[in-house]
């Protein structure tokens, strides 16, 4: 098949990169898949269970690994892109270790970084012992124990939504989309682990955008009695016993609240990955005001960049859940196939 002569470089071996690589390899293209970490899979490796059905994330990881198990895919882990030359629609790409030769198309699937919670110092991440992020909590689920630093079982847990999302004070205006439902999922999981605990979610809006999300949200209230308080946490301090003191406002009641909790979980938002942003100058690509890569058209060009032959897949263009990331990556494969058949 003549497709074999065509070479595609995919940068980022997370969900989007791997799914697109599998699709394109099955079309007969030769794929170089570059991943900076030691193993492919990306952020999903850190997650314990996925919303809305709470399946184990390992199942999705297995699916991804099967996708890239193809003779035409050359997976290069622990590798980062070094030099790029672009001439007449062809890319000459080299990594620090080797020269990849000429590529007929490039797919950027560099994903996202979690918001650095220390930037919201008022929430005390890195300052108070029992302030953790949603990622830290997933790690606790993995290990099976949800404990405070004093090795005690928390009786009361607060969850703060929109940490680093929809927050102009940290320069992030966008909604990270998945944190609301993550909070719902994690609240349920906490209640499962510690049935006699109380969980309070502090939210601005509950954005249950996906199928079965609203149902999960309802279940969390009816079955698990998770408390939802509409209002942002303004500041956190620690009292003499080491419990966290939250100050917030219940905007539905119009009253300020002070509350003590044993653990506070910060729902950190998504930002365009630093590793991706480093490619900006190399490829001459643009970012939008939200910091993610700017797609050529919001409705029917959301895999296209401003450079011919360069495509995007996944959360480097906008916050997405796993489902949407997989769809976006498959769409990117279609776009690339179409582009290469024309050129």
């Amino acid at each position: 098949m003549h497709n074999k002569e065509k070479h595609i470089v995919i940068i980022g071996g997370g969900t989007a990169g791997c799914v697109a690589a599998g699709r394109l390899a099955r079309e007969g293209y030769r794929i170089s898949l570059i991943e900076k970490d030691k193993k492919p899979g990306g952020k999903i490796n850190n997650w314990y269970q996925l919303f809305p059905d709470r399946r184990r994330s390992v199942e999705v990881t297995d699916y991804i690994n099967k996708e890239i198990d193809h003779p035409l895919i050359d997976l290069m882990t622990g590798t980062e892109l070094d030099k790029v030359k672009y001439k007449n629609g062809k890319f000459s790409i080299s990594t620090g270790k080797s020269d990849l030769g000429q590529a007929d198309a490039v797919l950027i699937a560099t994903g996202f970084d979690l918001f650095d919670a220390t930037r919201k110092e008022e929430y005390g991440y890195g300052i108070y012992d029992n302030v953790i992020t949603s990622l830290d909590l997933e790690n606790m689920f993995h290990s099976g124990d949800i404990l405070t630093t004093k090795e005690e079982i928390p009786k009361r847990v607060g969850i703060v939504h929109c940490v680093g999302s929809r927050d102009e004070k940290v320069g992030n205006f966008h909604c990270s989309k998945v944190c609301c439902v993550t909070a719902v999922k994690q609240a349920i999981e906490i209640k499962e682990h510690i049935p006699d605990s109380e969980v309070f979610c502090f939210y601005m809006d509950m954005r249950m955008f996906g199928p079965y999300y609203e149902e999960l949200y309802r279940e969390s209230q009816e079955k698990w009695v998770v408390n939802y308080i509409r209002g942002k946490v303004s500041e956190v301090s620690e009292n003499i016993e080491g419990r966290l003191v939250i100050k917030a406002e219940d905007t539905l009641l119009g009253k300020p609240i002070r509350m003590e909790v044993d653990m506070l979980v910060l729902m950190v938002g998504m930002q365009n990955a630093k590793a991706g942003l480093n490619l900006q100058d190399k490829f001459g690509i643009q970012t939008g005001v939200n910091g993610f890569f700017r797609i050529r058209d919001n409705h029917y060009g959301n895999n296209l960049s401003n450079v011919d032959g360069l495509f995007y897949a996944g959360t480097c263009t906008a916050p997405m859940n796993i489902t949407d990331t997989i769809s976006h990556a498959r769409a990117a494969a279609v776009e690339i196939t179409e582009y290469l058949s024309k050129n």
């Binding site: 110092e121 008022e122 300052i127 956190v236 301090s237």
Partner: peptide, 9 residues
């Protein structure tokens, strides 16, 4: 300073 608890600590 309450928003930067590192300082009062």
């Amino acid at each position: 300073t309450h928003l930067t608890p590192g300082i009062p600590i």
